[in-house]
Nucleic acid binder design. Structure first.
Length: 603
DNA sequence: GCACGGTCAGGTGT
DNA sequence: CACACCTGACCGTG
């Protein structure tokens, strides 16, 4: 572990100055530099050099201003930021669902900007964070590598306030007139030269606007341009958010869901110089060279890019653990030791025994199209009168049980109500973790609400499961997976008007015979996904190919935006002291998830 | 079919 | 106030 002092010895003088400087402007203090909230994804990404200004940790480092109670900024923790973003994403999906289900009467315009609507609602209800004075340097609760899909997401957590403008800036304390840049968004819309750690950013203004018949003009050294210039002299770090256009992998079979751009917080940069040159339209534009400050974690996206350039992936030990069963290959990677992944028989589908008397489907919906009319679709009715997915295939919210369309439905396979039955759509891989055996991660960015994979295996009754001792690690008790709204946007029910809320359609005959999925011998990638006390996935009960509510499919969905290489986890949801061995003694299993919310025990 | 460019409607901040 | 902004959705072209 590094003390602050040691840490500063790693960096050169200039940097130390900057470091202190940025702290000052952040009006906080460093409290802890050695623990990572999201440790898992960095575990195997080489040595960490924590020499860059980091957001102070709450609650020990509350803003000295002690903001008024009306503000949401009293204690901005990492989990507060995650919660805020999840709320945005959940509200967004809910409002989009509402908008999509509206019958498009000619004359009544559908709302095209759900992101804006969501933003207004969150602002009205004071759900945004870091809303106070604009921040220079690190932002409380935000970490390098965090991902977003809408510009307003940057705004609601105080990372970059303006909706459209690429440059945000601040009046300097004490110098009323002087402005410096606080953050920039680089979406590649301008001619940026991209050298990983160098960003050449174009100034603002002067560009022609065809819609308004405005011709190109020379840029002026004002506003954002002036702020960036001043940042050179003041040596104040500027936050950089990079927008990457979605590179649809060649093996991506997902034709639906065209989410355009992923914004990634790329950390702090210094503006080192600026100049003028002729722009695309013949006008003079300003160019600013920005350099990424050393010691910040490499973006996972870069790591993936790098490894793709190699012929053989480092640590690769199995090319495809699914052996062709999944439509995408799932490789196994171990950069730590020589251990190979455990042997098992890969199955993408659940294995039911005839002794369980599975209740078959009785019928399906009669929709001719893609079940877009939730009033006519019988499956939508079963789901409480709505299709539980958006048209891009994201689940709207976690429910007790979701009914997808099935083999007896008239709708085509491309129907909006068939999401998890189509299998994985992200490039997943299993990898050896430092402290929790094998884990699962993705090489792609995963947007909140996306389907990840099914937890498959052999279906066992409780009695059968009890007889198979010694492999608890691969058991999933179906009763345990009460899908809760908590994990996909806490407080959604308080924010959305009651008539929009889903009706709970749980079978209340819970105290019947329980079932378990045993993935020890037969299973899928799902069996490698570890538990976490602050997980990024949620387990959702789904029915589609049979009607037996006692034994739903367990489908895992993303509960937030997940950057590449971040370990995927869900909450195993054990109640401590309720797990017994064959002699009836309480079993104890420690949790090594490493999150700040860790309870210490898995069961 | 798709990638790309033009167009348009926006909210917020200056 | 008017205006600009590295949006985001949509619709036409190639």
């Amino acid at each position: 572990m590094l003390s602050n002092h040691n840490m500063l010895m790693w960096v050169h003088d200039d940097f130390e100055y900057l470091y202190r400087n940025s702290l000052e402007y952040n009006s906080g203090q460093i409290t802890s530099l050695d623990d990572e909230q999201n440790a898992p994804e960095h575990d195997d990404m080489g040595e960490k050099m924590l020499s860059v200004p980091r957001a102070p940790r709450s609650p020990l480092s509350v803003s000295p201003l002690g903001r008024a109670a009306a503000s949401n900024d009293n204690v901005v923790t990492r989990s507060k930021v995650r919660e805020t973003l999840r709320l945005f994403q959940a509200m967004f999906r809910k409002l989009l669902q509402e908008d999509e289900s509206k019958s498009r009467v000619p004359g009544s315009l559908p709302n095209k900007r759900i992101d804006m609507v969501t933003y207004s609602e969150m602002k009205k209800q004071n759900k945004c964070v870091n809303t106070g004075k604009k921040i220079l340097g690190p932002v409380l609760g935000v970490e390098v590598g965090d991902e977003f899909h809408y510009r307003v997401e940057l705004s609601i957590i105080g990372l970059h306030r303006p909706f459209q403008s690429g440059i945000d800036y601040v009046k300097m304390d004490g110098k009323k007139k002087k402005i410096v840049a606080s953050s920039v968004v680089s979406s590649g819309g301008y001619d940026d030269v991209d050298n990983f750690d160098i960003l050449v950013y174009s100034g603002q203004g002067g560009n022609p606007d065809g819609a308004k018949k405005k011709a190109a003009e020379d840029q002026k050294l004002e506003r954002g341009n002036l702020a960036l210039k001043n940042s050179i002299d003041e040596k104040i770090p500027v936050r950089v958010i990079r927008g990457f256009k979605e590179t649809k992998g060649p093996d991506s079979l997902d034709t639906r869901g065209k989410m355009g751009i992923t914004y990634t917080y790329d950390g702090l940069y210094l503006v080192v110089r600026y100049w003028q040159e002729k722009g695309r339209y013949g006008n003079n534009v300003f160019m600013f060279e920005m350099r990424r400050m050393p010691g910040q974690p490499q973006l996972a996206l870069r790591e993936v890019q790098k490894s793709k350039n190699l012929k053989v992936r480092e640590g690769l030990c199995v090319d495809d653990i699914s052996q062709g069963v999944e439509k995408m290959r799932i490789c196994a990677v171990n950069t730590l030791d020589s251990e190979m992944p455990p042997q098992f028989k890969y199955t993408a589908k659940m294995k039911y025994a005839s002794s369980h008397n599975l209740i078959p489907l009785k019928g399906g919906c009669e929709c001719k199209g893609k079940c877009s009319d939730s009033k006519k679709c019988l499956c939508a009715v079963k789901n409480g009168g709505e299709i539980p997915f958006n048209r891009n295939g994201d689940i709207v919210e976690a429910k007790t049980l979701v009914y997808e369309c099935g083999p007896l439905c008239k709708c085509p396979p491309s129907c909006y109500n068939r999401v998890s039955q189509h299998g994985i759509k992200y490039q997943l891989e299993i990898f050896k973790t430092t402290s929790r055996g094998w884990g699962v991660r993705s090489l792609n960015s995963i947007p909140s609400g996306s389907f990840i994979c099914e937890y498959t295996g052999e279906l066992l009754s409780e009695k059968e499961a009890d007889q198979r001792t010694g492999n608890d690690e691969y058991l999933f008790d179906l009763g345990r997976s009460k899908s809760s709204n908590q994990s996909m946007g806490a407080g959604l029910s308080n924010v959305i008007s009651p008539d929009l809320q889903s009706t709970d359609i749980s079978g209340e005959n819970a105290e019947e015979e329980g079932f378990t999925i045993d993935a020890f011998e037969y299973g899928s990638v799902g069996r490698f996904i570890n538990h976490s006390c602050s997980p990024n996935l949620v387990a959702q009960n789904v029915l589609y190919d049979h009607a037996d509510e006692r034994m739903p499919h367990i489908m895992l969905f993303a509960a937030e935006n997940i950057p590449p290489l971040q370990e995927l986890t869900y909450d195993y949801n054990y109640v401590v002291d309720t797990v017994h061995d064959s002699e009836g003694n309480i079993k104890i299993k420690k949790c090594y998830c490493g999150s700040t919310e860790c309870t210490g025990r898995m069961y």
